[in-house]
Simulated scan of single mutants.
Amino acid sequence: MIFHDATLREIATRVPATLAELATVSGVGENKLTKYGQQILDTLAE
Rank of each mutant, 00 (worst) to 15 (best):
E46G: 12
P16E: 07
E30M: 08
A20L: 04
T24K: 15
N31W: 05
T43D: 03
V25T: 06
E10D: 14
A6F: 06
I40K: 01
T24C: 13
T13M: 10
G37M: 01
D42N: 15
D42H: 10
D42T: 11
I2M: 12
Q38P: 11
A6M: 06
A12R: 08
L8H: 01
A12G: 06
T13C: 06
T24N: 14
Q39R: 14
Q39P: 06
A17I: 00
V15T: 13
V28C: 00
G27T: 11
T18I: 08
A17E: 12
I40S: 01
G29L: 06
T34D: 14
A45L: 08
E21N: 02
T13G: 02
M1C: 10
I40G: 01
A20M: 01
L19N: 06
T34W: 00
R9A: 12
L19K: 15
L41E: 03
D42V: 05
E46K: 15
S26G: 10
N31Q: 10
Q39L: 08
D42C: 10
L33N: 01
K32E: 03
H4M: 02
V28D: 00
L22G: 01
L8W: 09
P16H: 06
T13L: 11
T18Q: 09
E21Y: 03
T18E: 02
I40C: 04
R9W: 11
K35M: 15
L22Q: 04
A12F: 02
T13Y: 15
E10G: 00
V15L: 14
I40M: 07
T43Q: 04
R14W: 08
Y36G: 04
Y36W: 10
I11P: 00
D5V: 14
F3D: 10
K32W: 04
R14D: 01
T34V: 08
D5A: 12
A6S: 09
T24D: 10
F3A: 07
S26A: 12
T34M: 14
A17Y: 00
K35C: 06
G37N: 03
D42Q: 13
T7C: 02
D42S: 13
G27A: 08
E46T: 06
M1W: 13
I40P: 02
Y36A: 05
E10I: 03
